[in-house]
């Protein structure tokens, strides 16, 4: 518990800085932008209070927004992800439920489980984010294409990040 109080605020700052200073400067083909930062929300411990996750997600998204001048956009997408998270965890739950004090990582629940979990989360977040950004449905397939392309790219990055951290977790 005490470890968490130190780890998660540290991750919070790290993910925000990583996103706004480095990843926002990476664009493939001009419009595809990876969003690694939502890994912070995905990684929060499973038994965390749902309302607390939502509060954290709002503040977290807002801190990204302050840097990118998109007041509320990332916050709304993060809140949507926090809303969907309990349902995602429910659908993907193992037959005999989750063990106590397990975090939703590949190290704890396996790669197959994690990729499915991350893919759903990333798609929901990107879908919400991109449609809030254009704020209209007229160019639906155009926007949808960008959602899918960015989702694939983000999933790749998130898997990579998970791959590099899962080793250290097993050693602990």
């Amino acid at each position: 518990m005490i470890k968490n109080i130190i780890t998660y605020p540290f991750q919070f700052v790290l993910f925000v800085l990583l996103q706004v200073l480095i990843l926002n400067n990476i664009q493939l083909g001009g419009t595809i932008n990876p969003f690694l930062y939502i890994l912070f929300i995905l990684w929060l411990p499973i038994e965390t209070n749902k309302a607390l996750v939502m509060g954290i997600a709002f503040v977290f998204g807002l801190s990204i927004d302050v840097f990118t001048d998109t007041m509320g956009m990332h916050a709304s997408a993060c809140v949507f992800l926090a809303f969907a998270r309990p349902f995602m965890l429910n659908i993907l739950a193992p037959r005999d439920g989750y063990e106590l004090n397990v975090s939703p990582t590949a190290g704890a629940l396996g790669w197959f489980w994690f990729i499915r979990y991350a893919a759903i989360g990333i798609f929901l977040h990107h879908f919400f984010l991109f449609f809030v950004e254009v704020f209209r449905f007229t160019e639906f397939f155009d926007t949808m294409g960008r959602v899918l392309a960015s989702s694939v790219f983000s999933l790749l990055l998130i898997s990579l990040a998970q791959f590099f951290t899962s080793n250290t977790e097993e050693k602990r």
Partner: peptide, 18 residues
């Protein structure tokens, strides 16, 4: 939980539109 979601999301959209 759903009402909380609506509330927070409304706040976010208020920020966007404002």
């Amino acid at each position: 939980f759903f009402f909380l979601f609506l509330g927070v999301e409304t706040l976010a959209f208020y920020l966007i539109i404002k």
